[in-house]
Design a protein around this nucleic acid. Structure first.
Lengths: 119, 119
DNA sequence: CAAACAAGACTACAGTTGTAATCTCAAAAA
DNA sequence: TTTTTGAGATTACAACTGTAGTCTTGTTTG
């Protein structure tokens, strides 16, 4: 059974950097970010503990950090959770709602259809 | 400034019943649900404390509960949060992802366009 | 009226989250 | 070599969550 790794909102910025840049040392991660260093260290630590990020020994006393959960896995998990909570799991209901709330235009829908047809 | 009321996952089933049925007593809420009664009481209590549900005195010692946050408000809040976390706030990116992941078909997109055109 | 019932109030408790300070100690700098 | 630095480890702590038990007391039942 695969354990369900949850990425907290505060931890997400770190994941985004790792998804974008690949493998980095902690200073490299942090220089791409704002916020209190101590807090960031804690969040990175937690991600490692959870298994969302792997830490491979680099020089003694430092590590190279890499995302162990892919962005698509994260998105899939968030999508499922969102659809379930707000639309009983139905992507169709959601779409309808987005259209009604005007978060999506007819033009955008048409572009997608065109995209699909082009393959 | 409006306070940001957060509805926890465990509390959502109660909200869903209130959204569906309107105003109910706690026994009426609970008879529509599964789960430990004591836990449900706690969750209902928390919803009242948060202001997500209002409790109007009924007979002495009992209340009538009503959702104070609408389902659409909840959905909007979840939508914003989901789009932000997974797609930098872009509904378009999300749609593209759904199409790629085959959560939405060309036919469904076409139906929506037709719906918009009919008004 | 006495006993049982139960809605709501109060208490409990561990895990997660957001936020951050302090401690350790090897490596870099002076 | 002595000092400084800083990555990582450890500790802190309150709010929120998930889950559930106990206490109070008015109401219902026998």
């Amino acid at each position: 059974m695969k354990k369900n790794i949850t990425i907290a909102d505060s931890e997400l910025p770190i994941m985004k950097i790792l998804w974008e840049k690949g493998t980095l040392t902690s200073p490299q991660i942090f220089e791409n970010m704002h916020g209190n260093k101590s807090t960031l260290k804690t969040l990175l630590q937690r991600l490692v503990t959870k298994g969302a990020v792997t830490a491979k020994e680099n020089t003694s006393r430092t590590y190279l950090y890499t995302a162990a959960v892919t962005q698509q896995e994260y998105i899939n998990s968030e999508r499922k959770s969102f659809l379930q909570k707000a639309f009983d799991g139905s992507a169709k209901k959601m779409l309808l709602n987005f259209v009604q709330e005007e978060k999506i235009t007819k033009e955008e829908l048409q572009q997608l259809i065109d995209m699909i047809e082009e393959g």
